[in-house]
Write a protein that binds this DNA or RNA. Structure first.
Length: 415
RNA sequence: GGAGGAGUGGCAGAGCGGUCAAUUGCACCUGACUGUAAAUCAGGCGACUUCGGUCUACGGUGGUUCAAAUCCAUCCUCCUCCA
C-alpha cells in the first residue's frame, strides 16, 4: 500500500503502522500543509528508555517530513499513574520530582532527535499538568464526563486485564484514560493538533481522545499506533537483566547502549534497522539479506547507527572501538568502566568484583569464580581468594576483570 | 455493616508445627556448542562466612510451643456474595 503523504509512506516502509483510525483522511490532511501531532510520555523517571524510542522516532520522521511534533509530558497524569497492563499501582510522585524529570528528559533524550523552538515546524514540549491541575471536578464531570460511559471504559483491555487478575484498580487510576482523552482535546484546541500516535497498547487511550473531540467539538482527530516490538518468544523489547535500557548517558553508558543493540536477536535486526536507524531503505535491505555469521555485520551497523542517533557520532565511534578491542582483540577499550583501587596493597578478586559493580554480592562473585566465569585479563581464575596486585597490571597499565563473556571493567591503580 | 476466602522469594504457585532458605514452572546468571545470536545441554539462583556454620526472610504486631511459613489473637490489604 502506498500513500500520498511523505510521512505515512516513511512510516509504512519502516514498519511503524499498526492501526489508524482513518488512514485515507489522515493522508489527505498531511498533504494539506503543516500539521501537528503528539505523543505522550511518562515523567516518572528522569530518563526515557528504548521502549519510548518508537514514539520518538515517529515524531522524528514527522518533523523531518515538515510537520510539527509535540512531546506531551505527563506531569499531571504522572500524579495518577497509567493502569495499562500494570499489575500494581504506581507510586504517586510529587511535583518537584516530576518537574526535575521532565527537564532531564528534554535535555538528554529528546534533544538528540527533535529540534525544539518557535518556528512553525519546531518541536514543542508541553506538560498536561498545566491544564489538568486547574480542572474543576464538577465542571469537568458536567462538560466531559457525560461523554464517557463506564460500560465502554470497562471494555478496554487495560482495564479488563486488571479486573481479571483481581488486581485492585482505583478510581484514581481508572480516570487515567479520561485524562488522556482530554489531553488530546486540549492540544487540538490550543495547537490545532490533529493526530496522536503511540504504541499499539495505547490504542484505547488514544481513541478515547478521538471520540471525545468528535462528541464535544464535532471535529475529526486521528489515531495512529505502531506495532509493539516483541522478540520472537513474545518478550517486550527494552529490558535487560539489569533493568531498562535508558537513553540518558548518565544512567546507561553509550557503550552499554551500543552493546544492547549489538546483542539483539538475529530475527529482529531488519525490523530494528528500519525502526531505529535512518539509513536508506535500500541499504537496510542489503543488510537484511545477510545470513549466518554475517548477520553480525548488520548488528554492528545497527548498534552504531542507533547509538549515533541517541548519543552522537563521537560516542558511537568510541563505543564501537571499545567493542572491537574488547571482543575481537581480547584487549580493552576506553569505554569500559574504570575503577581506581590501591593495587600496591592488592585487592581480593572477590572484592574487586563488588567494587566494579559487576556482581551484586560476594556470594555471587564466588559463584562466578567457581563456575569459570571470572577472568583477569582474559584468563579464568578459579581461586576465590586470589589477590589482585601490581603484578597483574598489563603493559597498558590496567587490570581487566570480567564477569562472564560480556561484562568487563578495568582496574587502575589509585594515584 | 454482615458472611465467607486469600495474602509465601522478580512473577506464577506448592507447603499448612520440626527433615523449610522453603517443591515446581517462568524469568535471570555462569559454563559448553556457536557468531558478542537463537535453540539445546550442564550447573547455579537470600546475605555473610575462617565453608564448620551464622544471620535475615513466608502481609504487620503480639502470643502459644523445646520448636511456627505452618497454631492463636489482633491490625492492615485484596477477592467473592449479601445489605
Amino acid at each position: 500500500m502506498t500513500y500520498k503523504s511523505e510521512f505515512l509512506n516513511t512510516l509504512n516502509e519502516r514498519g511503524f503502522i499498526h492501526q489508524c483510525s482513518n488512514l485515507d483522511e489522515l493522508d489527505k490532511k498531511l498533504r494539506e500543509g503543516v500539521q501537528s501531532a503528539y505523543i505522550g510520555f511518562d515523567a516518572t523517571a528522569k530518563s526515557l528508555h528504548v521502549g519510548n524510542l518508537t514514539g520518538i522516532m515517529m515524531l522524528y520522521w514527522f518533523q523531518q517530513c515538515g510537520h510539527k511534533p509535540i512531546t506531551l509530558m505527563g506531569g499531571g497524569t504522572s500524579k495518577i499513574g497509567d493502569p495499562s497492563f500494570k499489575d500494581e499501582q504506581r507510586k504517586l510522585m510529587d511535583d518537584a520530582t516530576i518537574e526535575d524529570n521532565m527537564q532531564n528528559i528534554r535535555n538528554t533524550c529528546f534533544k538528540q532527535f527533535l529540534n525544539y523552538g518557535d518556528g512553525p515546524t519546531d518541536a514543542l514540549m508541553v506538560n498536561n499538568n498545566d491544564w489538568l491541575d486547574d480542572l474543576k471536578y464538577l465542571d469537568f464531570l458536567r462538560d466531559y464526563g457525560r461523554y464517557f460511559t463506564v460500560n465502554r471504559m470497562l471494555s478496554f483491555d487495560s482495564v479488563k486485564q486488571r479486573l481479571e487478575r483481581e488486581s485492585p484498580l482505583s478510581l484514581l487510576e481508572f480516570n487515567y484514560m479520561v485524562m488522556q482523552g482530554y489531553d488530546f482535546l486540549e492540544l487540538y484546541r490550543n495547537y490545532g493538533t490533529i493526530l496522536q500516535m503511540g504504541g499499539s497498547d495505547q490504542w484505547g487511550n488514544i481513541i478515547n481522545g478521538v471520540d471525545l473531540a468528535h462528541k464535544s467539538d464535532q471535529t475529526q482527530l486521528f489515531a495512529l499506533t505502531a506495532p509493539l516490538l516483541t522478540t520472537p518468544d513474545g518478550k517486550k523489547m527494552g529490558k535487560t537483566e539489569n533493568g531498562a535500557v535508558w537513553l540518558n548517558a548518565e544512567m546507561l553508558s553509550p557503550y552499554d547502549y551500543y552493546q544492547y543493540w549489538r546483542n539483539v536477536d538475529d530475527v529482529m535486526v531488519g525490523t530494528l534497522l528500519r525502526r531505529f536507524t535512518i539509513l536508506p531503505i535500500s541499504e537496510i535491505e542489503k543488510l537484511e539479506a545477510l545470513e549466518g555469521q554475517e548477520i553480525n555485520e548488520a548488528k554492528k551497523v545497527l548498534a552504531f547507527e542507533a547509538t549515533k542517533m541517541c548519543h552522537g557520532e563521537d560516542a558511537a565511534k568510541n563505543a564501537e572501538t571499545t567493542a572491537i578491542k574488547t571482543f575481537e582483540e581480547g584487549a580493552a577499550g576506553g569505554d569500559l568502566p574504570v575503577f581506581e583501587v590501591n593495587l600496591n596493597d592488592g585487592i581480593l578478586f572477590i572484592d574487586a568484583f563488588i567494587e566494579s559493580q559487576l556482581v551484586g554480592s560476594k556470594g555471587e562473585a564466588r559463584r562466578m569464580i567457581q563456575q569459570n566465569g571470572a577472568k583477569i585479563n582474559g584468563e579464568s581464575v578459579n581461586d576465590p581468594n586470589y589477590k589482585i596486585t601490581i603484578s597483574d597490571i598489563t603493559a597498558e597499565d590496567y587490570v581487566k576483570i570480567s564477569a562472564g563473556k560480556k561484562k568487563h571493567a578495568l582496574l587502575k591503580r589509585a594515584s
